[in-house]
């Protein structure tokens, strides 16, 4: 917002709201606002899609919709950054206080999902929860979604630090192993465990994490073995625990703790590489295809009644509103 005046920002939000309201696709459907570049109007053609530099962020969530949910699927709208998503959400609610004939939106089926991030984002506007961290505390218990409370939430935050952290959970190792293009991390065949170790080792050089250590430590308080007295202690205790525990469940808890607090985007974007080969695709294109495969993983998980993955449970909750 720094480069925008308040008036320009309000205009942008208003435009975005109008675009959503007038979208015929949303009639009788759930609408979910999410982060990501706002699509350029008029590009909804096959060639327009082909010319996109990368797959729209909103399409990742669409790819995660359980495969049996074939009709009245939720419609995702990328609304810019986290603040913009929340502003758009509240503006839409405001515009729909009274029923209106110039909108296809059903305010009772309006949702938003934003990244948890390390900085706390206020929600304001008399929302049930004052900020993103409060939503997180209500919505998640340890590594799991608190399903008792899930249906109360219209604004969801990711249970991991960013959407991209969901691209690196331990259960995805077989997806990477079976991928049609061999992947590497630090010039070695991609093993998620090596990424976790790199993330752990880099904790003390992450200023964002250092500046928000208190928030981070509250999130991972379920890992009682971790020492949160300083960033160095956190790093050292996490590495010690991670390298010593053999129980898979405990190890996964540590990974989830790490993915709740340690920014992962650069590891995803820069360090997940295909093997050096002139025939391998450009990185952007490869990442697009990987996220499609990851979306398929979550979509398939959503078919399991006992799944505990955050994203499938998000959809399970949404499905109650069809």
């Amino acid at each position: 917002m720094s480069f925008q005046s308040k008036k320009e920002h309000e205009q942008l939000i208003e435009q975005q709201c109008q675009a959503i309201m007038k979208s015929t696709h949303i009639r009788n459907k759930i609408v979910v606002l999410c982060e990501g570049d706002i699509p350029t109007p008029g590009l909804r053609t096959v060639i327009g899609y082909q010319q996109l530099q990368k797959r729209p962020d909103a399409d990742f969530y669409t790819a995660c919709i359980p495969s049996s949910w074939t009709q009245k699927k939720p419609e995702f709208f990328s609304c810019g950054g986290r603040g913009n998503v929340l502003d758009t959400y509240f503006k839409l609610l405001e515009l729909h206080r009274e029923p209106r004939s110039d909108s296809y939106l059903d305010r009772n089926r309006l949702f938003a999902i934003v990244d948890l991030d390390l900085q706390v984002q206020p929600t304001g506007k008399d929302y049930l929860f004052p900020n993103t961290e409060a939503i997180f505390k209500s919505l998640y218990q340890g590594t799991k979604v608190n399903q008792q409370k899930a249906s109360q939430h219209r604004i969801w935050v990711t249970g991991l630090i960013y959407k991209e952290a969901y691209f690196l959970i331990p259960e995805l190792q077989p997806v990477f192993d079976d991928y049609s293009v061999p992947l590497t991390f630090n010039s070695q065949p991609l093993q998620l465990e090596n990424i976790y170790l790199a993330l752990g080792n880099d904790m003390d050089s992450d200023t964002n994490l250092m500046d928000n250590l208190t928030t981070a430590c509250e999130r991972i308080s379920y890992c009682t073995e971790l020492d949160c007295s300083s960033i160095n202690q956190l790093k050292s205790s996490w590495l010690t625990q991670f390298q010593s525990v053999t129980d898979k469940e405990q190890k996964d808890e540590l990974v989830y703790a790490l993915l709740m607090i340690k920014p992962v985007k650069k590891y995803w974007e820069e360090q997940t590489q295909p093997e050096p080969n002139p025939f391998n695709p450009p990185l952007e294109r490869l990442r697009d295809r990987l996220t499609l495969a990851i979306g398929h993983f979550y979509s398939t998980e959503g078919e399991k009644s006992d799944t505990e993955h955050h994203i499938p449970i998000f959809f399970k909750t949404l499905h109650q509103f069809v």
């Binding site: 053609t45 096959v46 899609y49 082909q50 669409t62 695709p281 295809r289």
Partner: peptide, 30 residues
């Protein structure tokens, strides 16, 4: 799902159809 071993080439005008894939999957005749 119905024919997982097949390759499909779909002549289309549908943006929605393309959204189930990546931009690189989409080919054009321009």
């Amino acid at each position: 799902e119905w024919g997982p071993t097949n390759q499909y080439i779909l002549a289309t005008h549908s943006y929605e159809l393309c959204r189930a894939l990546t931009p690189a999957h989409v080919k054009d005749l321009e």
